[in-house]
Structure formats: structure tokens, C-alpha cells
Design a protein around this nucleic acid. Sequence first.
DNA 1: CTTATTCTGTAGCGACCACTACAAAAAGGA
DNA 2: TCCTTTTTGTAGTGGTCGCTACAGAATAAG
Lengths: 200, 200
Amino acid sequence: MGRGRPRGFDRDAALDRAMRLFWTRGYQDTSIADLTDALGIASPSLYAAFGSKASLFCAAADRYQERDGGRPGTALAEAPTARGGVEALLRQNVALFTKRGGPRGCLLTRATLSCPPSDTTVATYLERSRRDRLAALRTRLRTAEAAGEPLPSDDIDTLAQYYDAQVQGLAVRALEGAGRPALLRTVDLTMAGWDALSTR
Amino acid sequence: MGRGRPRGFDRDAALDRAMRLFWTRGYQDTSIADLTDALGIASPSLYAAFGSKASLFCAAADRYQERDGGRPGTALAEAPTARGGVEALLRQNVALFTKRGGPRGCLLTRATLSCPPSDTTVATYLERSRRDRLAALRTRLRTAEAAGEPLPSDDIDTLAQYYDAQVQGLAVRALEGAGRPALLRTVDLTMAGWDALSTR
DNA sequence: CTTATTCTGTAGCGACCACTACAAAAAGGA
DNA sequence: TCCTTTTTGTAGTGGTCGCTACAGAATAAG
């Protein structure tokens, strides 16, 4: 295996802690000192393992999207109907954004609004993941359309952007301190709109 | 009048430039050096006139809400119906968030997601303006309810939070680069939902 | 053993941060 | 004129930022 001195910390666990910290404080307000403190390692170890603050963020964001942050997406994709998928997407996001003991809101939305555009590494990563999210919504809506499921509109692009905006709105409101029940009531309203606008 | 040496710059014009800069780059990513550069003054003049970065931000945010950022709010309040008011609120916000030659998105939403909670001055200011925005929505909806106007729901609190979330979603998407036509199409969808859910 | 390789801790790099001490400059009042 | 008051420009303050040079420690290979 490796020839030199073995790493003295658990890279996987460290990544989890970094994710949680970026999620809690955003990108810019999380300093290397905060990270080395939370991860229990010194900065050279951090840089040897992750390269830079930007690439550590990208790795942490990948972890976010694989773990907690990925649930809403899989719920959307796996639901038998687009309506059920979108509702599950919204409800799972509310659960994610207001989990007890967990950071509020969405790691990606927060980073989007708080990372300077000069950091092209992070900005590019965020734009890509945003595109992927929209594409997932469009895909789910298109298969529903092809399956003859009634949709609130026949403009799939607009629908996808609309429901993505719902998620972003939930993320902002959760960070502002909105509680889970209140957010779920607005999701009810969103889905009532779906039903009222859907015609077969 | 003033006894000492007269101020060598236009405080009002400087405040406008500061507002624009905070709007463009957010709170944390706007440095004093950026501000003194854009305002054409040295830092002691800035501190003499505005006190601190935090209080300069609050003054700039006040200016924002009196000028450009206030239009959606007055459109909401002055419309003859709640439906018209909410639609005007959303459309004016889209116009505000995507104005050519102007910064993208909303100064307040951006600051909310990008200012560290440790800065209590700014955090308190932002929370207060958020409460005011929600209160304005609730007030408009309540008078409509009293006037017998059909509403999408009889839960005024949830309605207010729902439409506030729409605005925040628009702000995030505008900052992500969404164009005005695309945003207006999602507003159409939101208002179609209003109509479909409103019963008299 | 020696050597090569990799990681770790200390210690500190230059750059930038928000902010200010200080003295010269510019006005009004006496 | 001289004094007081306020603003100005210069030149920094201590602190924190992301990041790294360097030497020692810990492993595997020969």
C-alpha cells in the first residue's frame, strides 16, 4: 500500500464535518482555521488531503448531494407520478432544511448567495449542480407528459424553473428561521396549485 | 451653520454608490477598500460620515428600500385588489431583479444569505425588514379578506409566507442568471395558481 | 540497518480585513 | 488675526485570511 507515513485522521469523517460546517456557515464565512479546528487537524494536513478551500468545498458539496441533500432528488426521480415526485421533492427539502440538530436551509443555495464570483472553482461547481437540478426536474416532467399525466402547464421549462424556485424560496425562508410546519403549509399551497391547474 | 471644514463629497450620492456596491457584491464580499474606491473618498471620511461598515450597510439598505426596492411594496399596498397587488409585487420585483445595468437579485436577500450572524447590527436590521415585508403582505391580504375578495386560501399567514417565498425564489434565480422573460413566465404560473384556487 | 516516501506540527508567509491616530487644511466665530 | 470646529489625506494599527516552507516523525521497500 502506501509507502510513507499513514494519515492520522479519518478523511471520510473529516469530510462530513467540513460539509456540516460549510452548511452551517456558508462558504465565505467558514475559514480554514474553523475547518482545521472542527476537523481536529492542522492546515498542512487539510491541504495535503483536500488541496484547497475551494476543492474541499466541492468535495463537501458532493458529499452533501450524495447524502442528505440527495434525498429530495431521488424522491423526485423515483415517484411513480410527476405530481407525487414534485410533492416529495418539496417535502423532503423541507425536512432537510429544518432537521433538528442539523444546519438550516440548503448548503448549495447558501453558497450560491455567499461565495464571491471571483472564486471561479466554486462558482462553476455551483452552476453545474444548479443545471443538474433543473435538468432532473425537466426530465421527470417530460416523462410524465409523455405518459399522459396531467400537468399544471404544458411549458415544461417554465414548470421546472418554477418548482426549482419553490425549493430556493423554502431554503431562504428556512435559513431566516421559518419552522417546519409553516413551510409544509406553503408546500400544501403549492401542491393545491398543481391540482387546480392540472387538466387531463 | 456648520462651523468646521465643509465635507468634500456628496453624502447622498456616496450612499447611492454604496447601495449599488452592496447590491452587486453582497455585504461580506464588499470591503471598505472597495467602498472608498467606488465612493471616491478615503476611509476616515467614510467612517466620519457613516460610522462603520455595518451602519453604512443599514443606511444603504434604507436607501434601497426607499428607492428601487420600495416599488414592489408600494405596488402591493396601492393596488385596488390583493390579487392585483400580489401580481404587481411579483412583476415589479422581477423588473427590479433583472434591470439592465443594475445589479441582479435583491440586496436584502443577498445580504441575508451572505452576512455572518456574528454581525448582529446587520442581522437585526435584516430580520426587521423581513418582518416588515411579511407584515405588509399580511395586511394587504387581510383587508382583501375583509372586503370579501376571493383568496387562494383562508390562511392569511400561510399566504403571506408563500408569496414572500415566491419573491425570495425569484431573487435567487435572478442572481443565478435567470432572464426576465423566464422569471415572468413563472410569475404567470403563480398567478394562474391564485386564480385557480380563489373561490368566491 | 538505510533509503525513499508520505504525513504531521510548528511557525510564519504576504495580502487583505475593518478601523483609526495624527496632523494639515478649511471653514466660521470672536 | 487667532481660536475652535470639522473634514481631509497619509499612514498606519492589530487581526485574520488562505496557504506553505520546513524539519521531524512514521511507515514501506531494499
